[in-house]
């Protein structure tokens, strides 16, 4: 959270001008759409009569009711304590989301039929590929960061060439290059290892930069104190610098992990049966694309939420030594 002021500002959503503006904008917006064909208009039937012939009056009445509900909702939420506000707004957005998907008229039995396979094959492969890649990428990142900070010309040159190259090419192209290119050199490589290799190398390059900046953010006094006690380089790095760099590194690294989880979908192009691949193929036969795509989307989202939770947990852990 930002550093809060001790003087409380008046709550924005309770300021008359803001409430009025919000009301006006919502009213105009829903006036612009013709809502007379929706189920909401059906609910309004007692007031406006037959929705399709209610004309401008009908449109206005519908938009007016929506604007009142919307504004009232926002103003009321403004009274709630912070935790409740967050919870309620999340819930409402989620409901809107579900309502939106409702309009696709998805076939639930189809989803229910395919979901077990989508999870047992797709999710497992996705998790397996991402988890291994995350571990390898982290190892590469530590080594790369140390190399980029070293005064050894070879190490620096190799590390900077590596980060430049793998940050400079599209990940999709790296996947193809490794899968199709390595066999030309005589290394026949399966699709899954090729995907893991591409993801690790690409994310290792990004994370090298994150780790480097994290290491550099540590005060030089820490190096001096370690040195003055006779700690060698490896010991100082492992016990003093990296543990302090971790709290700096974790938020952007969490980002990378989430991003990698989703980018693992790119390995579907070389035929790995992970979540994205199955989402595209399972619905193909019966033209039920949306069912599978939305299911897969939800699964990706849930996995990302898990990573977010893990990240905030770790951040809280490292916050410990900063509390007075």
């Amino acid at each position: 959270m930002l550093y809060p002021d001790t003087v409380e500002a008046e709550i924005l959503v309770h300021k008359p001008w803001f409430v009025a503006t919000m009301f006006g904008v919502v009213l105009l917006l829903f006036m612009a759409f013709n809502m007379s064909g929706t189920s909401f208009a059906e609910l309004m039937r007692p007031v406006i009569g037959e929705p399709s012939v209610s004309g401008l009056y009908g449109r206005f009445a519908i938009a007016f009711v929506i604007a009142v509900i919307f504004t009232l909702n926002v103003v009321l939420i403004g009274f709630a304590p912070l935790k409740f506000q967050i919870g309620i707004v999340w819930l409402e957005l989620l409901l809107l989301f579900i309502a939106f998907f409702e309009t696709f008229h998805l076939s639930l039995p189809f989803i229910r039929e395919k979901l077990p396979f989508l999870i047992s094959q797709g999710v497992v492969t996705t998790l397996y590929v991402s988890a291994i890649s995350i571990v390898i990428a982290s190892v590469i990142a530590v080594a790369g960061a140390v190399a980029k900070l070293s005064s050894n010309g070879f190490a620096y040159a190799i590390a900077s060439f590596y980060t430049s190259f793998f940050r400079g090419l599209p990940l999709l192209m790296q996947v193809y290059l490794i899968y199709l290119g390595l066999p030309q050199l005589g290394f026949v490589i399966n699709a899954v290892p090729a995907g893991i290799l591409a993801l690790s190398l690409c994310y290792g390059a990004y994370m090298t930069e994150i780790f480097r900046s994290g290491i550099q953010s540590i005060d030089r006094g820490q190096w001096e104190a370690s040195r003055s006690m006779g700690f060698g380089f490896a010991l100082t790095m492992r016990r003093i610098i990296l543990p302090q760099a971790l709290p700096v590194i974790i938020p952007p690294t969490g980002n990378q992990f989430i991003s990698m989880l989703k980018d693992s979908s790119l390995v579907s192009v070389i035929g790995v049966w992970e979540l994205m691949f199955l989402a595209r193929t399972l619905g193909q036969k019966t033209f039920q694309h949306m069912e599978m795509l939305i299911s897969a989307a939800m699964i990706y989202w849930m996995l990302s939420i898990c990573l977010e939770l893990i990240q905030s947990r770790i951040e809280r852990h490292y916050h410990r030594s900063k509390v007075r």
Binding site: G221, E224, S228, S321
Partner: peptide
């Protein structure tokens, strides 16, 4: 050789 610094340089973690 022990050394004590102006800014302490304790290990905060």
């Amino acid at each position: 050789v022990g050394m004590v610094f102006q800014h302490f340089n304790l290990f905060p973690h």
